[in-house]
Nucleic acid binder design. Structure first.
Lengths: 248, 248
DNA sequence: GCCATACCTTGATTTACATCAAGCTTTCGA
DNA sequence: TCGAAAGCTTGATGTAAATCAAGGTATGGC
């Protein structure tokens, strides 16, 4: 079937499956299916059990908690090439988040069985899976660090620098990968606070904002900015530490 | 020689290695060594690369970030049977946390090579490793949920309920697993706030506190406290998305 | 194009928790 | 055994960010 072939091709393009032999890819393809979601559609709910995991071919998926009071906290925004649900699949426990398409999206669903078979036949793949989960864990730990010991301004700056992703110096222009609300939630901020922080960074000349388009004229300068009230120096308290080595 | 045997026995007792064949355990033992730490000793620093991971045989190890300003945030407290460092090992990136013994401790260090060999020879073990990492990830996601959308009182209650670990009803008595400072940090609280919360729960008759010893006379009542106090309850909010019709 | 709805911004006010500052209590080493 | 240090509690005060409240601006359906 051309549909099956299509899936095969999509799978083969994914970094995760790069080193698999054709026969194994074909095997995986048999355990996979395509999913199309339209913007706003919910893929699965918190509490669901997953018998497989998902890869984003196109579009954008939001992973989030919802509290009984209707509050919502975005944990992750997954774009093309990204995947989610592996951990829940391996764990065989209810999923702690729900997932929703932020745009019309095209996913692949890959059933557990295919992955288990691949692991059995290819220990390099097993290691790759382990490394993948490890990366996920690492990211989450970074988030915890961020939430625990950085101010909201620092979190926003960190996020912007990540988007700029020319790690060190120079300038950069890019688009926010989602609506400001969603990003605010991802950063554990209210939309109001996020807006104000962008405004103040803008005022300080560290960035310019036009809709979703952000320009950072001097990445180094942005990364150095801790928090200091530029104009008014009424309260001249100086709790700042000069130990600036934020590079990991 | 008897040392090697000792390690073999310790490994065989760990849940993670339960299903391995003796020959595989023996192989792992050859790649392992014992580590003794005294209270307060640092095992490794943030930024270190790990060529293996650690299992706690006895004692207690703290995983934490430290900020340049000397603040510290405890990410995890690992007791006997627990392990840490797997993710960093698989990822081959610098470790984001440092580790310190909270008590005199006895660990096993297991080198990467042994694990890779085990994965190669036993895909069930590979799956177990994957499930283990997945559980770790799950825990971290729980933490993020906690930090993001629960109040400090709710976090403390959640923590106490976890320690009580008779999930549903009845009463319980237990000891806090570490000093109140450390637990406060683990919960993203200052010691002062933690103390005040314990005090107020105590005042409310929900717990009694005597040093590290906590008694919960009615688990159900404790778990209900602080869960749904806000005024309007009927406000089931739709998720953050454009494609949802708002109520009213 | 026009309207409705969602999204974003900006200001005023509130609040949960941190910080600062003592006292108190337990632990532990000499 | 005593005394210092570390750990814990309690109160007063400060503050970062949330919440409340409009008003402004894109965006998509018809």
């Amino acid at each position: 079937m051309s549909k099956q072939l299509n899936i095969t091709r999509l799978l083969a393009d994914l970094p995760l499956f790069q080193q698999l032999r054709d026969s194994e890819i074909a095997q995986l393809a048999m355990e996979s299916r395509e999913i199309k979601l339209s913007k706003g559609q919910i893929l699965f709910q918190k509490g669901d059990l997953l018998e497989g995991f998902y890869v984003v071919v196109e579009g954008q998926i939001k992973l989030a908690f919802s509290s009984p009071q209707g509050q919502e906290k975005v944990v992750s925004i997954v774009g093309p090439g990204g995947s989610f649900g592996e951990a829940v699949m391996f764990m065989e426990k209810p999923c702690p988040v729900f997932t929703q398409a932020l745009e019309d999206s095209h996913l692949l669903y890959i059933a557990k069985r295919g992955i288990f078979t691949a692991i059995e036949h290819d220990s390099v793949f097993a290691r790759r899976m382990l490394a993948g989960l490890s990366m996920r864990l690492h990211g989450l730990i970074q988030d915890v660090e961020d939430y625990s010991l950085h101010s909201s301004t620092q979190r926003v700056i960190g996020f912007l620098l990540q988007l700029a992703d020319k790690p060190t110096k120079g300038h950069a222009t890019f688009e926010l990968p989602a609506s400001k609300q969603v990003i605010a939630s991802r950063l554990n901020l209210t939309p109001e606070t996020f807006s104000r922080i962008l405004h103040s960074l803008s005022q300080a000349g560290l960035i310019t904002v036009k809709g979703k388009r952000i320009t950072v004229p001097d990445i180094t300068r942005l990364s150095r900015f801790d928090h200091a009230p530029p104009p008014c120096a009424k309260n001249a308290q100086a709790p700042l530490s000069e130990a600036q080595t934020p590079l990991e």
